[in-house]
């Protein structure tokens, strides 16, 4: 894909952004009238999105202007670390979840970005790697967090069955496999389902953005397809690696199921 194909751009004024806050007011009003008690959260979300996206916008602008791969890799590494920290908070029932998450996100990001560059789909420049990397790591984070959240619940619910299987002389891997399989499925199913309904029930963000920016619909669709398939790959790698590593933390080296209720709880970073 060439730079020219994606070079269409539109100018959005501060006034237009401010006008869109009317919809935020509508959301707050709905919450107020229906006593959903979300006004404060809506306010925080609005301010945080404004500050975070503005800062990221400036950071990306700097990285684009510097045009060096090292800055891109640094940004992606920071995303991986913060992604792993965020996902760990959603996987509190999994002991030592940070390390599997960190490895899962790093592998998902590196392998999918490496592949799309190696196949010549995107050029190895900040303009492609930063936004695509952000999407890949963000989706991988969500998938890994959902998978490990499910893994924690399933390991607790299936404790009797897992220990009964261990008691027959099964390895930890054999005893945990049905649980790991269900957790992996949980991590991947959302994206698989949304990919199935793409174009029918919803238009994905990249395509909408490109159409709004005046791009040719054919180009918008093709780019969206590339991104969807890239995300499918990254999500599957992240969920697979995260669950494949994290389940081991429930067992001792002697293939015993750890008694987590009797151990001091971990405090997420």
């Amino acid at each position: 894909m060439t730079t020219a194909a994606l070079s269409t751009s539109i100018h959005v004024s501060i006034g237009q952004v401010a006008a869109s806050l009317a919809l935020v007011a509508l959301a707050a009003a709905v919450s107020y009238w229906w006593k959903a008690d979300l006004e404060r959260d809506i306010g925080i979300a609005t301010v945080r999105s404004l500050v975070q996206l503005t800062l990221v916008g400036y950071a990306i602008k700097l990285i684009f202007e510097a045009d060096t791969i090292w800055l891109v890799l640094l940004l992606l590494a920071v995303m991986v670390v913060f992604g792993a920290i965020t996902a760990r908070h959603r996987a509190t029932k999994v002991p030592g979840a940070f390390r599997p998450l960190l490895i899962a996100l790093a592998l998902a990001g590196a392998s999918t970005l490496g592949l799309v560059v190696a196949l010549g789909i995107f050029e190895p420049t900040p303009r492609y790697l930063v936004p695509v990397g952000g999407m890949v790591i963000g989706n991988a984070m969500t998938a890994a967090a959902v998978a490990l959240n499910r893994l924690g619940d399933e390991m607790a619910d299936s404790r009797a069955r897992i220990e009964a299987t261990l008691a027959l002389g099964a390895t930890a891997r054999e005893a945990a496999m049905p649980t790991v399989r269900r957790s992996l499925r949980s991590g991947m199913i959302t994206l698989v389902d949304s990919t199935k309904t793409t174009g029918l029930i919803f238009f994905p963000g990249t395509m909408v953005g490109m159409l709004l920016a005046g791009a040719n619909p054919t180009d918008a669709v093709r780019l969206q397809l590339i991104l969807l398939y890239t995300l499918l790959g990254s999500v599957s790698i992240a969920a697979l690696v995260a669950t494949g590593l994290a389940y081991r933390n429930f067992f001792t080296p002697a293939q015993q199921l750890r008694d987590l209720e009797a151990e001091p709880a971990e405090t997420p970073a």
Partner: peptide, 30 residues
């Protein structure tokens, strides 16, 4: 070796906890 020991000294827990499938598939697995 824990796994070899457990195959020689089998424990049947207090509450049934069979694997999904038929009785025979459970027996074959074990």
């Amino acid at each position: 070796e824990p796994l070899a020991l457990r195959r020689e000294v089998a424990l049947v827990p207090q509450l049934p906890a069979l694997l999904e499938g038929t009785v025979e598939s459970n027996l074959r697995y074990a």
